[in-house]
Design a protein around this nucleic acid. Structure first.
Lengths: 129, 129
DNA sequence: TTTATAATTAAACAGATATTTAATTGTTTA
DNA sequence: TAAACAATTAAATATCTGTTTAATTATAAA
């Protein structure tokens, strides 16, 4: 049983939790994922690509953004393995990656939208119960 | 039924999804939340405060970080309503906010840890040497 | 081939951000 | 009161990041 000495000892159960504290590198891996979604443009692009597959100029049009800016974000999302791409002729189509990670993040975004922005998500569709 | 004109029309069902696309401001609200967790130090602090209540110098010791730096992150987390604080004598104790939002984020962090960093979370359960 | 379109990359810049050191505020104790 | 301790705030700095404009690569059509 490891004993961790801290400056102050109020009778907390901290050592118990410190034993299960994930490694520093793991927090780095996770924060890298969160940082990808920490930009509103990139988050919006990811949301779109969770719902359909689209080429860059259409994404640019939807985002009202230059294609170099969109391309920049797509590269970041792709490097982070949140989206995948395929070329068809002159166009490159992007969509959310078919992975557990991407699915979890998408699900969480929808949940957070309901909690943090009530009444906003799916205004035309199903009414919240 | 609104019609959205895009540069390219491959037969996608994009208009359907565009109808339910959340507002730009909502993506801003969400990305602000994600950005809070997009720094490994802040993410680690939040994780700790999801598991126990601690004073600043103990958090600093656990993080191996200066107290001004920790205080800086705590202020950001508090402004984002992810943590709360109370003063007791000379010390100020912080813990995760008792809100649906904080609970959802905590739950998601644990899930992401399992997916993205398998075998890392809760090593005491799997007994590494 | 030349021309046009789609996408990426490069360079530059402005704005944001994390950390450090120093100064300050708040609380307890001697 | 003064001194010590806990925490925050301020100023400074170095780094990172998102966007723009310009240049480049890739594919298709003329």
């Amino acid at each position: 049983m490891s004993r961790i000495s801290l400056p102050h000892d109020h009778g907390s159960d901290i050592e118990k939790h410190m034993d299960s504290l994930p490694k520093t590198e793991d927090f780095q891996v996770l924060s890298d994922i969160f940082r990808l979604l920490g930009d509103s443009s990139r988050l919006r692009i990811f949301w779109i690509l969770c719902h359909c597959e689209e080429c860059v100029i259409n994404i640019s049009a939807m985002m009202d953004m230059s294609s170099p800016a969109v391309s920049h974000h797509l590269k970041a999302l792709k490097t982070g393995r949140l989206v995948v791409s395929r070329r068809d002729g002159k166009e490159v189509y992007y969509k959310a990656a078919d992975t557990e990670q991407a699915a979890l993040l998408h699900h969480m975004i929808e949940e957070l939208l309901e909690i943090a922005c009530p009444g906003s998500a799916y205004p035309s569709a199903s009414r919240p119960t």
